[in-house]
Each structure stands twice: as structure tokens, then as C-alpha cells.
């Protein structure tokens, strides 16, 4: 998977002040448990999974997800946030093999 770590983060285009809105995210990732065997070689496929996802709203950490190999391949996560003011939602995420990525979206509070 050449695109490992690529993510889509989705939020509503506009939210009103005080509204609780949903943040959805999908990451391209194999989420290998480290138990499964390669069917051709019989060798164990090493564990490779997302370990955490941090959500920063205007540079303040608002939610941290601790992930594990128990989460499905190409993981989907959704959380909720309360709209206070417009700004940037930055999502920082990493895996157990040293992969680290980030993705930002704008939050428009009307």
C-alpha cells in the first residue's frame, strides 16, 4: 500500500455557534495484527497499525483516540465537537512503525 497513512477528514461545511457536530475520518492503513500469516510463504505478517489519533482545535488538544489492531483495516473514526469559534481542526496520527501524518480542515462557525 503505497498510500498508507492517507486520510480523509470530513466536517460539516458550516456549523452554528454552540452546535455539536460530527468529525469523520478514514485512514488508508493495513491494521495488521501481527498474528496473521502470509498465505503464500506461511510467514507471520508483522504488526502494523495506527496507535493514536490526536484532534487539535485551534492548537488545543480536544480528543485523543488510542487505537489498536482490533480496529478494522482502513480505519474509520468519528467523534463529536462543539462549535465555539471558526478555526482549524488539525488531526495528527501515527502508527507503530514510526509513520506519522497530519491533516487539517477548516471549521466555519456562522
Amino acid at each position: 500500500m503505497a498510500s498508507v497513512g492517507r486520510a480523509i477528514v470530513r466536517v460539516p461545511r458550516k456549523v452554528s455557534k454552540g452546535q455539536v457536530f460530527k468529525v469523520q475520518m478514514v485512514i488508508t492503513h493495513p491494521m495488521e495484527t501481527g498474528l496473521r500469516k502470509d498465505k503464500k510463504t506461511g510467514k507471520i505478517i508483522p504488526a502494523h497499525y495506527i496507535t493514536h489519533i490526536d484532534f487539535y482545535l485551534n492548537d488545543q488538544l480536544v480528543t485523543k483516540i488510542h487505537s489498536s489492531p482490533g480496529i478494522s483495516k482502513n480505519p474509520y473514526f468519528a467523534i463529536k465537537l462543539k462549535a465555539e469559534q471558526s478555526g482549524t481542526l488539525k488531526v495528527v496520527y501515527a502508527d507503530n512503525k514510526g509513520g506519522k501524518w497530519e491533516k487539517s480542515v477548516n471549521i466555519n462557525v456562522a
Binding site: V62, G70, I71, K82
Partner: peptide, 28 residues
């Protein structure tokens, strides 16, 4: 997941900024 070989799946640290206690994902 009670009967998985390793039952623990995820932890989400909640803050007042979440507005509501909510989390969704897909599990094995």
C-alpha cells in the same frame, strides 16, 4: 470485545470540547 483474543479495542479521551460523549468506529 469480550470474546476477542485481545478484548481491548480502543480508548478515547473525552474533553468538554466534545460537547457530547460520542465515538464511532469499525472493529474486528
Amino acid at each position: 470485545i469480550d470474546k476477542n483474543p485481545n478484548p481491548y479495542v480502543a480508548q478515547v479521551d473525552i474533553s468538554p470540547a466534545n460537547g457530547e460523549v460520542y465515538f464511532a468506529t469499525r472493529v474486528k
